[in-house]
Design a protein around this nucleic acid. Structure first.
Lengths: 201, 201
DNA sequence: TGCGGAATTCAACGCATGTGGAATTCACTG
DNA sequence: CAGTGAATTCCACATGCGTTGAATTCCGCA
C-alpha cells in the first residue's frame, strides 16, 4: 500500500526530463541575476530537483554555466550570411539580425546572461572577447573594411555589448521598450559607418 | 615594558586615517572584482583593519558601496561646460571628456566599479540609469537635439556603457590599449551624430 | 526475470559571508 | 587630571554556499 507516501529518494518513474528543466532554470537565472547570485540550490529548486543532482549532471557550477550560456546562434553561419550580400548594406543587416535575436526570449536569455556574467566572471569575459575577436567581428571587418579591421571590430563589439547592457540589463528608457525595428533603423547606419566608413575624419 | 606586544584591541595611537584607507580599498576592489565578489573582510584586510570596523563606519555593505562608488565628476558642472560651447562640436568634446576621466586611475575605478556593479546590483543600475536619464544626457539632448531627445540620450548612454565594458572590463583589443585620443577621434563624430544628426535616414 | 547502470535523494562537511554585542584603548575637552 | 565619546578589536552567531559519498529507486536490456 503505502498510499501516496512522501517519495524519499531514488529514480523517478516516467520519462526523464529533469536535465532539460535544470538547463532552463539555470539559463533563466543566470540571465536574470547573474552568475554569482545564481546558486545551484536556487536552480535546483526552480527545477524541482535536489541540489546535488545539478552537480551530478554538470560537475560544477562553472561547467554548468559554460554548457548553458553558449551563443544562441552559429557564428560561421551568421558570418557567411552577412558576407553573402552587398557589403554596403551589411550594417543594417547586422543590426536587424541582432535585434531579432534579442526578441526571442530563449535567445535573449543566453545573450543577456553572457553579457551580465562578463562583468564579473572571467570565463564569460573570455567568451565575449572571442566572440568579438575570433568568431564574428574580426573576420567580418577583415573582409569588408579598408583599414583598422581589428579596431573596427572592437568598436562594433563595444556597441553591441552596450546595447545589451543599456536595453536589457540597466533598462534605460525609452531604449528598453522601443520596438526593435526603430532601434535597428538607427544603429544600422552606425554599424555601417564603423564597418566601411572613414574612421577619423 | 610589554616590549612590542601584539596589540589586541582599542583605539590606535596617532592620527585616524583608517576611514580613508577603507574607502580606497573598497573602491579598488569594487572596480576590480565587482560588488558580489568584494567582501567586507577582504576590504578590511587590504585596509589593515578589523572587518567589523567597516560595518561600524558604513552600516552595511550596500551603504558602503553607494558612499564609495559615486560619480567622479559633478554632473551639472560637466553639463554646463558641454553646453557652453558650439553645439556643433559637443560630440567630440564629450568624447574627449569621457576618455579623459578614464585616464585617471582614481576616477576610472569609480566608473568601472559603477558599470561593473550595474550588471548585478540593482542599486548600481539605478545610478547608471539616473546618470543617463536625469543627470546628464537627457538635459543635454533636450537642449541641443531637434527631436527624440530621450531616445538619443539612451543611445548615447548605451555607447558609453559599452565603451567602459569593452575597453576596461572585457578588455577587447585593440580597444583596450588604444590611446585615448585615437578613440576620442573616432567616437566623437558618432556622438555628434547621435546628438544632432538625423536619426533615421 | 534478473541485473547493471543511470537517475535521484539524503545527510553532512568545510568554508565564507554579513552582522551584532561587548570589551578595550585612545583622543579630546573641561 | 578626570571623564566622555569615538575608534578599534575580539568573539560569536546564523546563514548560505559548493561539493562529496553513500543510499535508494527505476529503466532498459539480455
Amino acid at each position: 500500500m503505502a498510499s501516496e507516501p512522501g517519495r524519499r529518494s531514488g529514480r523517478r518513474t516516467g520519462d526523464t526530463i529533469t536535465r532539460e528543466r535544470i538547463t532552463e532554470a539555470a539559463r533563466r537565472q543566470f540571465a536574470e541575476v547573474g552568475y554569482d547570485r545564481t546558486s545551484l540550490r536556487s536552480i535546483a529548486q526552480e527545477a524541482g530537483v535536489d541540489p546535488t543532482l545539478v552537480s551530478h549532471f554538470y560537475g560544477s557550477k562553472a561547467k554548468l554555466f559554460v554548457s548553458v550560456v553558449e551563443l544562441p546562434f552559429d557564428p560561421p553561419e551568421v558570418l557567411s550570411r552577412l558576407l553573402a550580400d552587398d557589403p554596403a548594406t551589411v550594417g543594417p543587416r547586422l543590426a536587424h539580425f541582432v535585434l531579432g535575436v534579442l526578441e526571442s526570449e530563449h535567445d535573449r536569455q543566453r545573450l543577456v546572461g553572457l553579457v551580465r556574467a562578463a562583468a564579473t566572471e572571467p570565463e564569460a569575459a573570455r567568451l565575449v572577447r572571442d566572440l568579438v575577436s575570433r568568431e564574428i567581428f574580426v573576420p567580418l571587418t577583415a573582409r569588408i573594411s579598408a583599414d583598422h579591421a581589428d579596431l573596427r571590430a572592437s568598436l562594433l563589439g563595444s556597441q553591441l555589448v552596450g546595447l545589451v547592457m543599456a536595453r536589457h540589463i540597466v533598462q534605460v528608457e525609452p531604449l528598453a521598450s522601443s520596438p526593435p525595428e526603430a532601434i535597428a533603423a538607427i544603429i544600422g547606419p552606425l554599424f555601417q559607418h564603423l564597418l566601411t566608413g572613414k574612421l577619423e575624419p
